[in-house]
């Protein structure tokens, strides 16, 4: 208690200097790896000219951003991006936490190791491979779902890659299927950090399992949940290219429910080979993400200062 109040008043150099030294290597790395290249962001505002070097090209204002708004197609694309990300955020929090809590109830070390390894398998696969496997299930000619379920029942087959209605579900499913392993590991590491004392105290008070989860586990997970949520909000305009491009096999028919800002930009610039235009799109995404993070954090800070992430 005493140390805390003291720390607030004056700076203790004996502590501060070593802490700064500890930060040094990482900051140097961020400088080289992130901040120096960030000068490249200016490419978004330049008319590319390789003959003078791309970083010396003349500025052309917002010219590179125009293609984004030239067509009326951006609306549904933005809607898709936002809605999918919100869905991922909610399901991607609830599901891994549930599984992590359940996982924690398993006492056998062997079973724990088995489940953990296996559930992580999808996380290790690349999206390209995932897209082949999804196709193995959904193909109209040879897919399992058609061959073993739909055709025997109805005599017909479903052309999944031509039917929009299925895709919001398929994409959310594939995303969770792929990421649940890591999400579980992440929340589990926090659960492992919870002192057993809390649970023992709760048991002594006669708390049921539910109450232990409700009053011990979840509150302890709150900071991690908040952090993860704020971080995903920062990426709300971005999307996993593989998931939205490769998994639906870039099927045009599905664009209205599968296209996100990233795949839209990719398709639009396919024949342009213009890094200034793609850079413009990513700058716009980053700015929106940044503003949202600042706003979110400010709101959290207002509600409960302790939980603000910075």
């Amino acid at each position: 208690m005493k140390a805390k109040t003291m720390g607030k008043r004056r700076i203790r150099w004996k502590k501060v200097i070593p802490i700064y030294i500890m930060l040094l290597p990482a900051m140097l790395y961020f400088l080289i790896n992130n901040y120096l290249p960030m000068y490249g962001i200016t490419i978004a505002f330049r008319k590319l000219d390789y003959s003078v070097g791309i970083l010396n090209s003349p500025f052309n204002g917002l010219e590179n951003f125009k293609f984004l708004f030239a067509s009326g197609n951006l609306g549904p694309v933005v809607r898709n991006t936002l809605l999918y990300n919100i869905a991922f955020m909610i399901i991607g929090t609830v599901l891994p936490i549930t599984v992590a809590i359940l996982f924690n109830e398993i006492r056998s070390v062997l079973a724990q190791r088995f489940y953990q390894t296996v559930i992580l398998v999808p996380y290790l696969m690349s999206m390209v491979i995932v897209s082949y496997l999804v196709f193995a299930f959904l193909s109209a000619d040879t897919g399992f779902i058609n061959k073993s379920i739909v055709e025997p029942l109805t005599g017909n087959s479903i052309s999944f890659y031509q039917e929009k209605i299925f895709w919001p579900f398929i994409l959310v499913f594939v995303n969770e299927w792929k990421s649940i392993g890591f999400g579980m590991v992440l929340y589990m590491s926090t659960i492992l950090g919870i002192s057993t004392e809390y649970y023992e105290a709760a048991k002594v008070d006669g708390a049921t399992k539910w109450q232990q989860i409700r009053y011990v586990t979840l509150p302890q997970l709150k900071p991690t949940i908040i952090t993860m949520t704020v971080l995903s909000i920062s990426k709300i305009c971005a999307s996993d290219f593989g998931l939205f491009y490769q998994v639906p096999k870039n099927s045009g028919t599905l664009y209205s429910v599968t296209q996100t800002i990233d795949t839209y930009v990719y398709n639009a610039l396919m024949n342009q080979n213009n890094i200034a235009m793609s850079s413009a799109a990513s700058v716009l995404q980053a700015i929106i993400g940044f503003v949202l993070v600042i706003v979110c954090n400010a709101v959290i800070r207002k509600v409960s200062k302790e939980n603000a992430i910075f």
Binding site: N34, P37, M38, I43, S234, F290
Partner: peptide, 13 residues
């Protein structure tokens, strides 16, 4: 946090 959002693209890296 900023490094997580903004990047200068592969060419400048």
């Amino acid at each position: 946090l900023i490094t997580m959002l903004f990047n200068g693209g592969v060419v400048s890296s």
